[in-house]
Amino acid sequence: MPDTLVEPYTRLREKMAQRNRSLREKVVSLEEAAGFVQDGMKVGIGGSTMSRTPMALLWELIRQHRKDLSISRCIVSTDGDLVFGSGIANHVVTSWFAQGILWGLSKVMRHHVENGGKRYEEWSHMAVGMRFRAGGMGVPFLPTRAMLGSDIVGQRPEAKQIDCPFTGEKLLLVPALNPDVALIHVQRCDPYGNAQIDGLQFMDIDLALAANSVILTTERIVSNDQIRRAPDQTKIPFFCVDAVVEVPYGSAPHECYGLYEPMMRHMEAYVAQVNADPVKGMQEYLDRYFYSPKSWNEYLSLIGMDEVLEATQKGRSIYND
């Protein structure tokens, strides 16, 4: 675990200097990619809520029984349940933590936070963004005007209130967050890691710039020539990226913009099962969908062809007039 809240600048620069930032192929398997994430690391998760969650990589980390991870993401949904319920993480930094607005409170989060000794560290949504952005800018903090006057700020000694040296106004400084590794799922990238993101980009660009390493999972690997035909679509440059894994439906049962919507019947069944019993229900869910399948494709088969195709039809329809 890190010994300081904000990583010293010299150490950040040293880590950067050691990264191989050359234009090189970095395609690996899901199993190999998971090896970039070691016990105790600070792990930033791309996407938001039920969108572009790097589910396949979380699935693999859970199968490999990582432990003591500290997860950060702007908003967590069932991914937060899964990292607590499987035991791979004991700390989640986010602004909102439940399965989804349609389902009320997460009994899994409640169980682990109220009784289980796991920590949900709450910041405002913008504050999470400013923390990643400061991390990506190479500065130790950014000022914001949010969280002041609330009780959230009292819970967060990590944030410092100051009087602005220019105007005298009260401002809140939020500390940079530089995850050890970021996990980001995208629609397409090339073997070097030039990533093109369609639709909502959430905080992924700041997260990729802030992290000390980045693993991309991608629906599809395309050629570098194809990337070069539309460089304006490239949202994450290759030199941020350390590994690339091609995983079709890599966010399932969450959505991936333009390709598939959330697989809602699976989500509803999941929520009913884990909220009925946040320990046993979760264990049975993990046994069935995470530990038993031999491959990601087998996991998708368990979700079911009907569900996957229906989600695909809805996902693609965003481009229909």
């Binding site: 938001s48 809520t49 039920m50 969108s51 702007c74 908003i75 949904s77 989804g100 607005i101 349609l102 949504h125 913008m126 963004g129 400013m130 990643f132 952005r133 639709g199 909502l200 980009q201 959430f202 905080m203 992924d204 660009i205 700041d206 959505e255 913009y257 333009g258 919507e261 959330p262 809602m264 996902g315 965003i318």
Partner: peptide
């Protein structure tokens, strides 16, 4: 949309930005 972070929110919008 089931949340304000889902693709359905963007249909016929003027622009998409990052969340921050």
């Amino acid at each position: 949309p089931p949340s304000t972070n889902d693709q359905r929110c963007t249909k016929r919008a003027n622009m998409v930005l990052g969340s921050a």
